[in-house]
């Protein structure tokens, strides 16, 4: 069962940055990548600093893999999977996300 929730208009997210959304009481970091308009959703929780900050990280790529760097201690997380690229034993939750008629929707059930 899925429950898509409306979060914001795609245009509200500056390309190559993230924003944080509150979905079902969960902090979800939603990112929009450059010219391709990719959208990704990860938990906003940074497991290294234990602070809710990932949406404020710098978006970029490592060897072509789109990723975000935690603003606190700069560990990299793959946007698509949430896996930490510096320590594959660590990952953050990734959520389904889509764009419908210019609106970004996230499914944060489980």
């Amino acid at each position: 069962m899925s429950a898509w929730q409306d979060v914001c208009a795609l245009t509200e997210i500056t390309p190559d940055t993230g924003v944080c959304a509150l979905v079902d009481g969960k902090q979800v970091a939603v990112f929009r990548t450059g010219p391709d308009d990719g959208v990704y959703a990860l938990s906003n929780f940074d497991p290294f600093s234990k602070a809710f900050v990932l949406s404020r990280g710098i978006v970029g790529d490592k060897g072509g893999v789109p990723k975000v760097a935690s603003p606190l201690f700069k560990q990299n997380f793959a946007l698509a999977t949430g896996v930490c690229l510096d320590d594959v034993a660590v990952s953050v939750r990734s959520y389904p996300v889509r764009v419908r008629q210019g609106r970004v929707e996230v499914d944060a059930t489980e």
């Binding site: 500056t14 190559d16 809710f52 900050v53 404020r56 990280g57 710098i58 603003p71 606190l72």
Partner: peptide, 22 residues
């Protein structure tokens, strides 16, 4: 400014210094 905002480290992006709890 719009084209620059995504380039900034969080401190510059919020024009303040981030602390351990965000």
């Amino acid at each position: 400014a719009d084209p620059h905002v995504g380039l900034q480290d969080t401190n510059d992006r919020f024009l303040a210094n981030i602390q351990r709890d965000g």
